[in-house]
């Protein structure tokens, strides 16, 4: 007798197997995005020390935006916690082997680093607001006078960004009961995905909020963003071109890592092969190939390549696609990963 069974790892059928809903993917997405923004803005802070003429573009908005996004992400994580009141206990100990413990401590360090760089860039980001807060602008001025401190802030941002980005992947890969996540490549994969999302976000900011729009106030910024959204983007903005190049290299590396991730699992045990088949041909294949690979990586890569060659007009579409694809990547990996555990359990 040959056993024939069809696995139906479908979230609609077996909702119980999916303990994690939307909160964890959103948290991982925002964590990765903030990591990317931290690395890019940290790099910018350091570069700006040497090169005084370097255009600020929208790197300066990144730290303040990161603070907001990280808080939203933490909120999503908090919603997912079973015992919300005991969250402080994470900070009573430090377990070297526990990624959760690492993560909570990294996050604890990320906030001050972000706050420092946000303070540093406040006068450039929101000049009007900075004038109303003389204490903040005085602090920022004092910081700018000590290049060493600025450099340290930049390095701290880059380092913590890398750690945060890798941590969002490692968080999954330490849960060894889920074969799909048993890959050391998840960390770098999520890091580079975060980097490309970060570059895309700055790109998006450059589109919706032009330096020449002269908006200082936040409400002005929102209004001009809405107006700019409907206006065709200016062709060949120098800063955005660099971003497109950077984004394309991040996306290429991400695609390679994704390929290695799949090949690695395919050449592993049968359980791992079956796990990765979930996203290659199984119930998550359509979302994976169409949304993650097609719309999230290959299409923006192509569009940005054509834009860089001036074959097509520069638009916000690639940036939006990269951001959407990055979210889809985490949703698919988290959902398929949880289903992969069930496959093992059934055998």
């Amino acid at each position: 007798m040959i056993e024939t069974t069809i696995h139906r790892q479908n979230p609609m059928i077996d909702p119980a197997f999916h303990a994690w809903g939307w909160e964890i993917p959103v948290y991982l997405f925002l964590g990765g995005l903030v990591a990317g923004l931290m690395i890019l803005s940290g790099y910018h802070i350091i570069r700006a020390l040497w090169d005084k003429d370097r255009a600020h573009g929208h790197y300066v908005t990144a730290p303040i935006l990161s603070l907001a996004l990280l808080t939203v992400g933490m909120g999503a994580l908090f919603l997912d916690l079973e015992h919300k009141l005991y969250v402080w206990r994470l900070y009573l100990t430090f377990e070297v082997t526990s990624p959760m413990s690492w993560g909570s401590w990294i996050l604890l360090l990320v906030y001050p680093a972000l706050a420092a760089s946000a303070l540093l860039t406040l006068p450039q980001t929101f000049p009007k607001l900075a004038r109303r807060l003389p204490f903040c602008s005085r602090c920022a001025g004092a910081l700018h006078d000590c290049p060493r401190v600025v450099q340290a802030i930049g390095f701290a941002n880059m380092l913590l960004g890398v750690m945060l980005g890798i941590y969002t992947g490692i968080l999954l890969s330490t849960l060894s009961a889920r074969p799909l996540w048993n890959s050391a490549l998840l960390g770098p994969l999520f890091l580079f995905s975060g980097l490309s999302t970060g570059a895309a976000t700055i790109h998006l900011l450059a589109h919706v909020r032009r330096p020449d729009s002269g908006s200082d106030d936040f409400s002005d910024a929102v209004l001009s963003a809405l107006v700019n959204w409907l206006r065709p983007p200016a062709p060949g903005h120098v800063g955005t071109q660099k971003l497109e190049h950077a984004d394309n290299s991040f996306l290429t590396v991400e695609l390679l890592l994704l390929g290695l991730f799949i090949v690695g699992l395919l050449s592993s045990t049968e359980v791992h092969q079956r796990a990765v088949e979930l996203i290659l041909t199984g119930p998550y294949a359509a979302a994976f190939w169409v949304l993650v690979v097609g719309c999230g990586i290959v299409l923006p890569l192509t569009l940005q390549f054509l834009q860089a060659q001036h074959r097509i007009r520069s638009t916000v579409v690639p940036a939006l696609l990269v951001i959407g694809g990055s979210l889809a990547l985490r949703i698919v990996i988290v959902a398929a990963g949880q289903a992969s555990a069930w496959t093992v359990a059934s055998h």
Binding site: G282, P283, A286, G294
Partner: peptide, 11 residues
């Protein structure tokens, strides 16, 4: 090919 792949074909 199955339903899942048909969606990729659809795209």
């Amino acid at each position: 090919f199955g339903d899942e792949i048909s969606l990729i074909v659809a795209f």
